[in-house]
């Protein structure tokens, strides 16, 4: 188990290093920072001095090492657009995105798994057909369209929920949360549905497919032949086997939810990292872009690592594989 964890950790570090190289390249080759910083009347000597001070005349690998050392200390430089440290900007936006992503993921899992199990067990019931039709719609509609439809119905037409923003926010230590106020919760509903709907249908379909697969296996047949109740067969034996691959996908999707909250945040003007990233792209704000790149990569790698470890806990067979290699 420990060897398995360490091996995975080393792999994760290698991935992060590769991403850091990309972020670094982005930084170095999208333009010359000196010409962006210096005015027209800066003398050639001043430019050379500035270049030396910034360390830009060092060999590339020295610069890369410095970039990594800074990134490890969470120093991502100053935003060109906001003139503030990138870290502070990200820290300010991070809670909004995380709360939105977790609400969406919770929605997807809490509704998707029961729907998947139901449609897997009751293959031919009319309710299953309703669920499957809905999930087909959820899979095929693009996110921005879902967001716009929801805004039209619930904000414009019914005046029930706000169409943009995050509502009132309360500070809990360094974390700004919208989960503790009524307006914050109300503002969360539509974006969370928009972001979570696709994931929910994905989870439903995946759980259903896995459930059908597992229900055909010999050990389920044998469990029935042992006279176990339907409940024990479905929820004790089938569901746990279903969840092994489902957990992997949900974990990866959580990364995707965070990374691709960009569209939802844009539609709902949600003050999260995705919205900031879109603005950074428009202003060619490279420090923000590269920091966002690193952060998203880090989240993906971290989630992957956690999923792998959870996987080992659930499926005893992998423990052996981990030990064997």
């Amino acid at each position: 188990m420990l060897a398995f964890a360490i091996r995975r950790l080393i792999e994760a570090l290698l991935v992060m290093l590769a991403v850091a190289l990309l972020a670094f390249v982005l930084f170095r080759y999208v333009g010359d920072p000196v010409s962006q910083m210096a005015g027209q009347d800066t003398s050639l000597e001043d430019r050379i001095r500035l270049r030396q001070e910034l360390g830009l005349d060092d060999p590339v690998f020295v610069q890369f090492a410095r970039f990594i050392a800074n990134a490890v200390r969470l120093d991502f430089g100053i935003s060109y657009q906001m003139k503030q440290p990138v870290l502070a900007l990200l820290a300010e936006r991070f809670p909004a995105t995380i709360e939105l992503a977790l609400a969406a993921a919770l929605l997807a899992v809490a509704l998707g798994i029961p729907m998947g199990v139901y449609t897997g067990i009751n293959r031919d019931s009319w309710l299953s057909k309703v669920f499957l039709t809905l999930s087909l719609i959820g899979v095929s509609l693009p996110t921005f369209l879902i967001g716009i439809i929801l805004i039209y119905v619930f904000s414009v037409w019914l005046h029930l929920l706000p169409s943009f923003g995050r509502g009132e926010v309360v500070s809990v230590g360094a974390w700004h949360t919208g989960l503790l106020t009524a307006s914050g919760l109300k503002a969360l509903i539509l974006p969370a549905i928009t972001l979570g709907l696709f994931q929910m249908t994905l989870v439903t379909r995946l759980v259903r497919a896995e459930m059908l697969e597992v229900l055909r296996t010999d050990y389920i047949k044998f469990a029935r032949a042992r006279g176990l109740s339907n409940r024990a067969v479905h929820f004790g034996h089938a569901l746990k086997n279903t969840l092994v691959p489902v957990i992997t996908v949900i974990g990866l999707q959580l990364g995707a939810i965070i990374a691709f909250a960009i569209i939802t945040e844009t539609v709902f003007q949600w003050p999260g990292m995705g919205l900031m990233f879109i603005q950074a792209v428009q202003f060619a704000d490279i420090p923000v872009m590269s920091a966002y790149l690193l952060l998203v990569a880090f989240l993906f790698v971290a989630i992957n690592l956690i999923v792998d470890l959870v996987y080992v806990r659930i499926d005893p067979r992998i423990r052996i594989l981990g030990r064997g290699q």
């Binding site: 050990y219 032949a225 746990k240």
Partner: peptide, 24 residues
């Protein structure tokens, strides 16, 4: 019938490798 299975009729299937739930 479920109560008859396992209680009054025991069953052994062909493949012991797949008859047991691998996760328990």
């Amino acid at each position: 019938m479920r109560k008859v299975r396992g209680r009054r009729i025991g069953t052994v299937f062909q493949d012991p490798l797949t008859s047991l739930n691998p996760l328990y």
